[in-house]
Amino acid sequence: MISFALIIITSLFFMGIIIRTKSIASGRKGPGIFQPMKDVIRLWKKDAVYSKTTSFVFQIAPSIYFASVLMAILVIPFGQYKGIISFEGDFVFFAYVLALGKFFSIISAMDTGSSFEGIGASREALYSMLAEPAFFILMGSFALFTGHTSFHDIFISLHFGSYISYALGVLATFILIMIAMIENSRMPIDDPKTHLELTMIHEVMILDNSGFDLGLILFATNLKFAMYGALIANFFIANFQMYLTIPIFFAVQIIFAVIVGILESFSARFRMNHNAQFIFTLTSVALMIFFGVLMVIGKFI
């Protein structure tokens, strides 16, 4: 319950911090940190224009996409407090429910019969397929490390003792940040601020969404960022008391947002055909964690 509330709160300003960081880095003052959320609320009040080509899929897809992100957030624990949904193997559910949302966002893009949205849909499907193994191997390694298979049990029994386990935590953070960037279609993979349809991934998929639906999709993106931030935060908050964990949680989220902002200010997007290779490297980093775990638990020798 706590994690759900905190993630919702974070999602309100997370994107704002990214945008603020980017504008400061480029020497502008930039909008306030709640501006993205105000945009979403405005969108919720607006009328919608639908494409003549679309069918029922286009109508239901944004709602299901949003529901899938909410459902995934319910699984995230907060330190020693379980998420609203918590059972053994819940991270499989987490990944698959997000995949369900992705399925719908892809087919809703295909539904418009556009020449561009198919490009985005195709890329989204391929890249998320390539990113998925990294997440599963990461969680698999921690499941092996702790002997548990739910988010909550894994996080509370992660005792950082040796240097290797710290290294594992850092690598895991790296992977989660990169997965978050891929899933939210951010910088090294996709440039959300690009103005050419041919070079977009996520943005091009929602070209025809408008009004309430677009608001839902944008808010879902904010939520997804906060969700991955919460996952990263969980690696560090462990079993501390509440008055410590909540500040740590927000600190991690803000640092995460600033990192994303800085990354987006100072790096350029990869060439599209290099993306696949880059994403697959994540899996090899995840494998490094796995071998690290094997070393720690002494199975390697």
């Binding site: 003549k52 080509t53 944004p62 709602s63 309430f212």
Partner: peptide, 24 residues
């Protein structure tokens, strides 16, 4: 959950005029 969200969306967008156009 998906049902609730879809229902809410329907309630909110009910009064608004829907317009149709060609795909972008």
């Amino acid at each position: 959950l998906a049902g609730i969200i879809f229902f809410t969306r329907k309630q909110i967008t009910k009064q608004k005029p829907e317009s149709f156009a060609t795909t972008w």
